[in-house]
Write a protein that binds this DNA or RNA. Sequence first.
DNA 1: TTTGGCTATGAAAACGTTTTCAGCCACCTC
DNA 2: GAGGTGGCTGAAAACGTTTTCATAGCCAAA
Lengths: 360, 360
Amino acid sequence: MKTFSATSRGESGDEAPSPPGSHVSIKDVARHAGVSPATVSRVLNGTGPVRPVVQERVWAAVKALGYVPHSGARSLARRKTDTVALVLPELSGDFYSQLLRGMELAARQFSIQLLVSSFHGDPAEVKRALAATKGRVDGIVLMWPEMEKDGILQSVPPGFPVVLLGGTEHLHHPQVTLDNSGGARAAVEHLIQLGHKVLVHLTGPTHNWDAVERRQAFFAVLGQYPDVQGLEIPGDFTEESGYLAATTLLELRPRPTAVFAGNDASAIGLVLGLRARGIQVPRQVSVVGFDDVPLARFLTPPLTTVGADVQELGKVAITALMRLRDGSPLPRATVLPTHLVVRGSTAPPPVPGEGGAYGS
Amino acid sequence: MKTFSATSRGESGDEAPSPPGSHVSIKDVARHAGVSPATVSRVLNGTGPVRPVVQERVWAAVKALGYVPHSGARSLARRKTDTVALVLPELSGDFYSQLLRGMELAARQFSIQLLVSSFHGDPAEVKRALAATKGRVDGIVLMWPEMEKDGILQSVPPGFPVVLLGGTEHLHHPQVTLDNSGGARAAVEHLIQLGHKVLVHLTGPTHNWDAVERRQAFFAVLGQYPDVQGLEIPGDFTEESGYLAATTLLELRPRPTAVFAGNDASAIGLVLGLRARGIQVPRQVSVVGFDDVPLARFLTPPLTTVGADVQELGKVAITALMRLRDGSPLPRATVLPTHLVVRGSTAPPPVPGEGGAYGS
DNA sequence: TTTGGCTATGAAAACGTTTTCAGCCACCTC
DNA sequence: GAGGTGGCTGAAAACGTTTTCATAGCCAAA
């Protein structure tokens, strides 16, 4: 088998125009152009006055040597890295995918780089990730959906630009979130409007801020409709917990005819679980999710759910961070709208006697 | 509206234990501990001999001042950044999501950071992205699916660790790819085994390396079966192109009974397009995709397609890069296996006279 | 011709680390 | 007591930039 090793590299092919030494520094350029490093820096950055003829000499030297500035050294000298860190719970999945895309788009607009890391729910990882960014980035976008967050931000010095994404509000850092409450309200009211009288909420993890907000909104809406009953089944945002919830649901008395699930994954699990037990959605039970994952519209029936412009969320987070970095005033919290997407998994409740109700 | 500005930050809350000045450097720690910066460095990095009692003093000072090393300066001095750059066509979508996850997992294992950027098909962006990494990373994973790639790697000095992900092979850099040929072969042979005699390939973009490999494999297999005919319809990997291909397909003579689509997106579009024209899949036309996107198993019918462990691909790419960085020998090319996933979108061809064939 | 004020440049000091090099000290061996 | 020997430590030189500060030259004004 042909092998590659760091020492056995061949001659230049489509590499640098004339790549003499791997490491050509600003001093080499200066020497080659017959000027001082300071002047080269001035030409490269367009700062300070330099005679046109000298500028040409410098550019010529840059091209001739194939010089590319060393961003690390540059950052050190300028005290500015043009990089921001993204510390997220996960990187995969539709939500983060969209989020990342929005952030990348914004980053390009601001000409900054993105340093990503994910911590998979481990607080120790968050701390490590945050510490590792010291001296490497100009700011941090942190997403920490857990309720508890004491000491997470220990290693970041006060005054360092940090934007919190989702989750609870924070004394020291601005926050960008989706309107969980509004979305949940819309979902629940949709079910009530359809005529449902017994609703159940399939909750998310109790320590998850989004889950808490959605649950609160659920009961808040029910408080306004005395003739509607609200129950809840504990879940944890996984498809499996939704599947299992189907069993619990069928044992509830009075019988719920509609479910507001904390997110799409558990809603999908629930639909599958109900179907496995012979219950039809939405004829016998209506189901609403939350997130509007791409999958939602491809399901049978297509899932009614609450959507949001997650890409926009990413953009806004980066933009907020940049404003913070630049010292511009910034709202303490920015809440992005969510909207109900009515599809096929919701319908009016079954009329007793027409065979829609499920067995005794 | 309450606003935040960089200058109006409050007192410390859950921030640093005792955050005196925002910027505490190794010199401050040294002074506080009554030693030299060199000794602090030695203690922090566990290098060189330091008396235990002094070590304690240093650690105490570190804690007292809430010192966190400045990675930027560290990188400069060590000539090592513990960061690698990911230069990808996109960041969103199932494929990249999985890829990123694998890379992140591997990165954590190697204790390195990930600097991401995407270029959306623009060669100028690639060059900018690569140049921006100079002095910021120890290596680069570059994915450039286009056939043409002259000069893309101009600004990276020869000998700098680069791993190519997918795409064509390269003289100077090792490569990690998925087995497009094997997957395509398996897909086509599956259709032939089912009894199909007229196959059509819905191609990807002509300048895309993966598309080219899959197309080549399609015709290579057909070459071995003289009694099977192969046609092709040009596409571009988008769902829309698949949808439109349905029309073209129905006009072909002889009538194809099976389609091997270049990827899942176009396969899905095709299925939708066929259905819109009253053609049933797989009863009248079988369809195979490529990629096994998560959606595939939720479609009706679930899509038969070619899958691969994309997360593993990401891991392998990072691992290869690390080996390259460390000067370990490394295969010039690593090809990861793909596998056929048979689901519901393929079936034997309709038997004439049984109503399966579509109208004249 | 001096003075003053530009413009264009270079020398050198940052930036915050790591690492080399040399030196100090205590201990051991004759 | 002289001469190693080895363990700790500090001074200082990197690393590759940017930026401040000083100065040299030049032209206009006095």
